[in-house]
Design a protein around this nucleic acid. Structure first.
Lengths: 345, 345
DNA sequence: CCAGAGACCGGGAGCGCTTCCAGTCCCTGG
DNA sequence: CCAGGGACTGGAAGCGCTCCCGGTCTCTGG
């Protein structure tokens, strides 16, 4: 009833009702300068009366910006979709966008299909900026993102190249702490189950593992790669046991894989943590359920999303913010408790 | 280099290069009628040469549509964010949108904060249609969605009201099958851990439970509610054991809660499935990890997303599609195996 | 008393596209 | 041979907003 026509009221109608020009109304609404107090008030009243909401599309066209940012994710990545990661990232991003009036668009990129769609989407002016996550080594998404020329923030580093803006978790540091924990427990034959070699996160965690073992002057070559899934972790554990039946600890690059490794260890009659201590990475809910519960490295997933979005907002505003490295934290549970006497072998 | 100016080429430039009017170019590009074969070809070449991509914003303004749909989710809902649900829904939706040139916007609605943001977003013309999920009983999001007047598809029914278009999982049927399974195992004192009473999904699953027990002429009032979390499930199981120490089966409305219930049962010295058989709901990965593994009801999450989007597309196109109820399936694992002799009590 | 600096105002030209419409042209059937 | 119906064409009017800019008005300081 408030709007004369059935459609949404337009700026013109507001201006007319307020008795000012459209320009003045526009200024008042975007509270820019050069509007008298009286007119500002009149416009505000008209806005309220009509229930006026600016037409974002028209704004976008006139301002030459879109009013939306996109979160692009490679969806071959079990890492994000088998886990609760995704929801948390989104929650963080949303929180950062909360008082921004920017919309969040989602772009899932199948590595093979849907390239056209991605390309169209990334082509300006379909978004004002882009957050990109979970890239693989030679991900076509990365190229498309780079070609788009849009302000871009990486969530987690890509394998190749050093982007100007990114937010990452301190994977290397976290993995180092995990391995140090095992060393401090007196373990000497320490293996690792690493992630896929074509992801930066896997490489960084493996580096951290190597860092710690090198300092302790231990061998750090007892490594098997897997794909971040439970099944993959179980299989990798099999291979490790075959290579080195006498291993007394294993640092696993994800909780999912650690859960699989745990199963394999138990199947092979190893007691955890007495015979083999295990630490995971991620701190997923799953870590509470394994038998025994999982010592792991906690990473701030929600913050990752939040900081990505904040960084992007800054970049879009023309600032030159610094990249961010978020801290991790050791969470000690049963699979590698603080002090446990090494079982006599 | 292809574009004369640094900016994206416009339709005018395409038309000029092709030697036709802008109208003709537009028609050719949207392959509408009334374009000669020659002109169509010329336009296509010009498009290719210039690397022209239509400006969606301008299209949106002229066409009076946005070119995007929104997925709105209430984020108080652990159900979606503690689980891998979310990623799968998104994957399904994306698949359905794949060859549509519609963008997917995401709207997370904190039940208390951010109402303005939601309202702005839902106000046309910020999206052409809306999918809404995970509503609670008196969810403000539902009111806002209804007031928006946008074509709406519900993913999962709301507690109140019967929306014209929805896609839901056959929760009632699934829960009935779960309970029937327990009955068929010879269990007679069957309890249930239900979800929050202010969600339709919880109510439906509880109804299904009651359906089955009524047919079997068993008491179906041994019910405790919880919040779909593991901790909640564990606590509810405590209460059930207190009320009825002699229960021999429990049907749990989610795998997460079932995992918690399992822990409680073991703590109380109950053997599963010998003393108490347990079935969950959802078929999350977690069900493989519990000790024993979890018999559960599988629901097609990805399909839910896919069908929601398909339905929405139909509605947006002015069709009147039918709502959908997706089937569930019993997955038998250790916590309630096909045949197990009831332990002598 | 007057020049000049602001504050404020509204007209109007876009932003890039769609779409209506009046006008051509050609080709058919009577 | 001619009327009439398509197929095709391009001009022009939007879609709803922003923002530049020339203009008015007021107030200050010299």
């Amino acid at each position: 009833m408030t709007s004369p026509t059935g459609r949404q009221p337009t700026l013109d109608e507001v201006a007319k009702l307020a008795g000012v020009s459209r320009s003045a109304a526009s200024r008042a609404i975007n509270n820019a300068a050069h509007v008298s107090a009286a007119n500002r008030l009149a416009v505000e009243r008209a806005v309220r009366e009509l229930g006026y909401v600016p037409n974002v599309t028209a704004q976008a066209l006139a301002r030459q910006k879109v009013g939306a940012v996109v979160l692009a994710v490679s969806d071959h990545n079990k890492e994000l979709f088998g886990d609760p990661f995704f929801g948390q990232i989104i929650a963080g991003v949303t929180a950062a966008l909360e008082d921004t009036d920017l919309d969040l668009k989602l772009l899932l990129c199948h590595p093979e299909r849907g390239h056209d769609r991605v390309r169209r989407m990334l082509r300006p002016p379909r978004a004002d900026g882009i957050m990109v996550m979970a890239l693989r080594g030679d991900d076509p998404l990365q190229r498309m993102v780079e070609k788009s020329g849009l302000p871009t923030v990486y969530g987690g580093l890509p394998l190749h190249g050093q982007p100007e803006w990114f937010v990452d978790v301190d994977n290397r540091g976290g993995a180092r702490v995990a391995a140090e924990h095992l060393v401090s427990l007196g373990r000497r034959r320490i293996a690792s189950i690493a992630g896929p070699a074509d992801t930066h996160v896997a490489v960084a965690r493996l580096d951290g593992f190597a860092d710690a073992l090198s300092v302790a002057q231990l061998d750090h070559t007892l490594v098997e790669h897997a794909d971040f899934t439970r099944e993959g972790g179980a299989a990798a554990m099999e291979r490790l046991l075959e290579r080195e039946p006498g291993l007394d600890a294993v640092s696993v690059a994800s909780d999912n894989m650690a859960a699989g490794a745990l199963q394999t260890l138990l199947q092979h009659g190893r007691r955890v943590p007495e015979d083999v201590a295990v630490v995971g990475f991620d701190d997923l809910p799953i870590g509470h359920l394994t038998q025994p519960s999982l010592t792991t490295i906690q990473q701030p997933i929600r913050s990752l999303g939040y900081e990505m979005a904040r960084l992007l907002l800054a970049v879009v505003d023309g600032e030159k913010p610094s990249p961010l490295l978020l801290p991790t934290r050791l969470v000690v549970r049963e699979s590698a408790p603080a002090r446990v006497s090494l079982a006599a072998s």
